[in-house]
Design a protein around this nucleic acid. Structure first.
Lengths: 234, 234
DNA sequence: TTGGTTGCGAGAGCACTGCTCTCGTTACGG
DNA sequence: CCGTAACGAGAGCAGTGCTCTCGCAACCAA
């Protein structure tokens, strides 16, 4: 009998899934700090100690949830990207930005888990790096395609200092060898800008200024598109 | 005898201070989630129940700490602003930005308390609004002065939608009636950009790209200065 | 000065948390 | 078929925020 189809393995997978599902439900309700292993066990009708057969600690469960959340967000972004005519690179950028915001507003606690303050004492393990890196990589897609097609221009405004050039060229080799360094810099800038704005909206810092933030968000992602050298919308 | 100088009032003030001081020390060491009333009481040599004479709940203590932190950051920004020749509006902007980053890096946990995910269930009470609003207002200073002196230009790139115009004009009346709406919009943009970048750096999202982030930060705040219409550095 | 009121600290206790250890059971695989 | 390993339950430990009661000390007014 295959190890992954044995009764035990199946039960284990199902229970693991049930645990993370219930955990996600709790986070959606009360936030990551309200995540209680005992409450999960209670809801699942099992002893709290039994949970430790599946996750060695609360932090490990959190890590699993973080990976799941990054993956869900990445999938949503990819789907948005795929929903736009590939040559419309600006449209793809805008669609992905809107999707990130929508996702964040739909599950604010999961967003906070990813982009809020790291949970106390919790140190992001290596397993989260790849799922997390998916997001900026996806956002980079239209820029790479547009550059290759000649529709993206280099809008460099400031000369890069030598140290910054060095950092960017190291990064360039890994993710986008064909893009000029200044464009990669602009991409990182837009990336931080996008999530900075969403975080400010979600965490309540825009209350009293541009709240609700929908129109300002739209204004900003268009401005970012220009900053990125993406062709302006016809 | 004056009520504020009576033995009891003095002792109360001193103990209140001792509590917040010890609480800040704990947050600096273990983060906001590691804040334990019992540990504070232990350190202060008193019963945990006695703390409730000073702060009715853990959340109230947190609120006091948040207000203290906003005030400290605001003071630091004001000091940085005052350290630059007032007519050098671009220099003032850059100095304030660097001060925010330095403050955040020096006390990352307090920064996370202000700009990270809101603590679970914790709802920012009205008392925190004014201290929090000090920061964007201070950052707006050079822009207002520069506009009045004619050294700041309106770099509007996108027309404001009508809804956004309405939001910005309401805001304009309250904080800067003389500034064009587009400039106020650019200010909010730069504000979110600044804190977005600092949060990304502090929360570890720049690891693997532009980390250490010093040079990229410098590049960004100069770019923001341009975006704001501030005069370029001679 | 006296006497009532109020503020205060200590202690016990409640309900909850993450986590560990032990113990009997059950499924698996050689 | 039988030893091993996975498993669930239960008790228990140390810690948490918070409440309540009790006795004492400071305060204010008569």
């Amino acid at each position: 009998m295959n190890a992954s189809t044995s009764a035990r393995a199946v039960a284990r997978r199902e229970l693991t899934l049930a645990i993370t599902t219930e955990a996600r439900r709790q986070i959606a309700d009360h936030g990551a700090d309200g995540l209680s292993l005992r409450a999960i066990a209670r809801e699942l009708g099992m002893a709290s100690s039994a949970l430790y057969r599946y996750f060695p600690s609360r932090d490990d469960l959190l890590t699993a949830l973080i990976i799941e959340a990054y993956t869900a967000l990445g999938d949503a972004i990819d789907a948005a990207d795929a929903g736009v005519e590939p040559r419309d690179v600006t449209g793809r950028w805008l669609a992905m930005c809107r999707t990130v915001r929508d996702w964040a507003r739909r599950q604010p606690h999961e967003y906070a888990l990813l982009y809020g303050s790291p949970v106390p004492g919790y140190r992001a393990p290596a397993d989260t790096i790849d799922p997390a890196a998916r997001i900026p990589l996806a956002l980079l897609g239209p820029l790479r395609d547009g550059w290759r097609a000649g529709s993206v221009i280099d809008r460099a405004t400031f000369p890069l200092t030598s140290g910054l050039s060095r950092q960017l060229s190291t990064l360039s080799e890994q993710i986008a060898p064909d893009l000029p360094l200044a464009v990669i810099g602009a991409a990182i800038s837009a990336w931080t800008r996008l999530f900075g704005l969403i975080s400010f909206e979600l965490f309540g810092h825009l209350v009293g200024s541009v709240d609700p933030a929908g129109e300002f968000f739209e204004h900003e992602i268009r401005s970012m598109a220009t900053q990125l050298g993406l062709p302006s919308i016809p």
